[in-house]
Simulated scan of single mutants.
Amino acid sequence: MIRRMMVILGFALVFGASVGWGDVTWQMRIHGSEGVEYFPLADIDSLTFVELPAGFVPVPAGAFVMGDGEASCGMDEHEVTLTRDFYLGQHQVTNLEYKEVLQWAYDHGHVGANTSSVWDSLDASTEELLDLDGRTSDGMFETCEIQFDGAGTFYLRPSPRGMIAYPPDYDPSSHPVKEVTWYGSVRYCDWLSLQAGLPRAYEHGGDWSCNGGDPYGAAGYRLPTDAEWEYAAQWDDERIYPWGDEEPDCGRANYYPCVDWTVPVGTYPDAPGALGLSNMAGNVWEWCNDWWVCDLGTTPVTDPPGPGTTSHRVSRGAPWGYYAEGYMRCAYRAHHPVAGNSYLGFRAARTVSAP
């Protein structure tokens, strides 16, 4: 494991003295949720305090080996160095979270909608963002749990599939949003940026590039890159699965036939990733920023933005309706066209701004 890290401090600092025989050594005493740590002041050349957005986890910059030699499209192992600290959503974006920000975007004229679809209306874009009448692949069940009344209001509607899995009182609020296209996921990130007074990360037109092709330098919210997602999932010991090296089971992740629908985000508290990230395997695939190619090669890279334009985007993490355990490996790299389905969701990210 190759690891170089910057420390992100999100808690109080208390200075203390460590007294030796005839000498005084000043140390920093840091009180955290897992105890107290001491750092010699002589070894500290700077301190940076950053604001942690609600619902996000800080991920320090560093280096890791991407790929594990076994996972599909993760066979080739290569060293990746990420030079920027970033925030990653602690959980997948929920129906309620998406609905509330979508309502804000609609009220501000950023999107158009009817009872079957939501589409973009910024930068002359008309891409579909959310398929409101999306169905399971057999056409039997409506799967999008966000609906539009045709008069200006979005609301949540339990999917019939969810009601079968959770009788009798199924509430979709804390379940991950589904039927969101890749455009709809990056659009959500831009809405967060607009609400926070940050520059939008994405160009809505052309190839929808993130920050002109440099996602790591974007000031606003965005999707995690392919490399960032795997780096956070396997933090920081090259574990096979987000929870460790133990084989998947229904006590660690939601995959077929555990529930036969999504579970509320944050389920499986006994099997989080090392950073406290929930559901990094199972529940829904998660859109990433990158275009997809299978072979990434073995050459070491720094801050990789992914390949040029292809036909699919990277998706990670494995969904509720797939049985194969290999899909849940941290290194497994899936791909989908930009359209949404009942197995696809996302979590947001943001680069930690330089001081």
Score class of each variant (00 low, 15 high):
residue 3 R to P: 00
residue 5 M to H: 12
residue 6 M to Q: 11
residue 6 M to A: 11
residue 9 L to N: 11
residue 9 L to D: 06
residue 10 G to Y: 10
residue 13 L to V: 14
residue 17 A to H: 06
residue 20 G to N: 13
residue 22 G to S: 15
residue 22 G to I: 11
residue 22 G to N: 15
residue 31 H to E: 15
residue 40 P to M: 12
residue 41 L to D: 09
residue 43 D to V: 13
residue 43 D to G: 11
residue 45 D to V: 15
residue 48 T to D: 15
residue 49 F to K: 12
residue 49 F to W: 14
residue 50 V to W: 01
residue 51 E to C: 09
residue 59 V to F: 10
residue 64 F to W: 07
residue 65 V to D: 05
residue 70 E to D: 05
residue 70 E to T: 10
residue 72 S to E: 12
residue 79 E to Y: 10
residue 83 T to F: 05
residue 86 F to A: 03
residue 87 Y to C: 10
residue 88 L to P: 03
residue 89 G to F: 04
residue 89 G to M: 09
residue 94 T to F: 12
residue 97 E to H: 10
residue 102 L to Q: 08
residue 105 A to E: 05
residue 109 G to Y: 11
residue 110 H to E: 09
residue 111 V to I: 14
residue 115 T to N: 07
residue 118 V to I: 09
residue 119 W to E: 02
residue 120 D to F: 00
residue 122 L to Y: 02
residue 123 D to G: 12
residue 125 S to I: 02
residue 130 L to M: 01
residue 133 D to H: 04
residue 134 G to Y: 03
residue 136 T to V: 03
residue 138 D to F: 05
residue 140 M to V: 14
residue 143 T to D: 04
residue 148 F to L: 05
residue 151 A to L: 07
residue 153 T to L: 02
residue 158 P to K: 08
residue 159 S to Y: 04
residue 163 M to V: 12
residue 164 I to Q: 06
residue 165 A to K: 05
residue 168 P to D: 15
residue 169 D to H: 10
residue 170 Y to W: 11
residue 170 Y to P: 03
residue 175 H to Y: 13
residue 176 P to H: 05
residue 178 K to D: 01
residue 178 K to Y: 01
residue 180 V to F: 02
residue 182 W to I: 03
residue 182 W to Q: 06
residue 184 G to K: 03
residue 185 S to A: 15
residue 185 S to F: 01
residue 186 V to M: 08
residue 188 Y to D: 00
residue 190 D to W: 05
residue 190 D to V: 07
residue 192 L to S: 00
residue 198 L to H: 03
residue 201 A to Y: 03
residue 202 Y to N: 11
residue 203 E to K: 06
residue 209 S to F: 00
residue 209 S to V: 06
residue 211 N to K: 08
residue 212 G to A: 08
residue 214 D to P: 01
residue 215 P to G: 01
residue 215 P to S: 02
residue 216 Y to G: 03
residue 220 G to P: 06
residue 221 Y to T: 05
residue 221 Y to A: 04
residue 223 L to Y: 04
residue 228 E to C: 06
residue 231 Y to F: 15
residue 237 D to C: 10
residue 237 D to L: 12
residue 238 E to R: 08
residue 239 R to P: 01
residue 239 R to S: 12
residue 239 R to H: 07
residue 240 I to R: 13
residue 241 Y to L: 00
residue 242 P to T: 00
residue 243 W to Q: 08
residue 244 G to N: 11
residue 244 G to L: 05
residue 247 E to A: 14
residue 248 P to Q: 03
residue 252 R to M: 03
residue 255 Y to V: 09
residue 264 P to C: 10
residue 267 T to C: 07
residue 268 Y to W: 02
residue 269 P to V: 06
residue 271 A to H: 01
residue 273 G to F: 00
residue 274 A to K: 14
residue 276 G to Q: 11
residue 276 G to W: 11
residue 277 L to S: 10
residue 284 V to D: 10
residue 286 E to H: 09
residue 286 E to P: 02
residue 289 N to F: 04
residue 290 D to V: 05
residue 290 D to Q: 07
residue 294 C to G: 15
residue 295 D to M: 04
residue 298 T to A: 15
residue 299 T to K: 10
residue 300 P to E: 13
residue 303 D to G: 03
residue 305 P to G: 08
residue 307 P to H: 13
residue 311 S to C: 07
residue 314 V to I: 05
residue 317 G to N: 08
residue 320 W to R: 00
residue 323 Y to K: 10
residue 323 Y to N: 09
residue 329 R to T: 00
residue 342 S to Q: 11
residue 343 Y to F: 14
residue 343 Y to W: 13
residue 344 L to M: 14
residue 347 R to M: 00
residue 347 R to D: 01
residue 350 R to L: 05
residue 351 T to E: 08
residue 351 T to W: 08
residue 354 A to N: 12
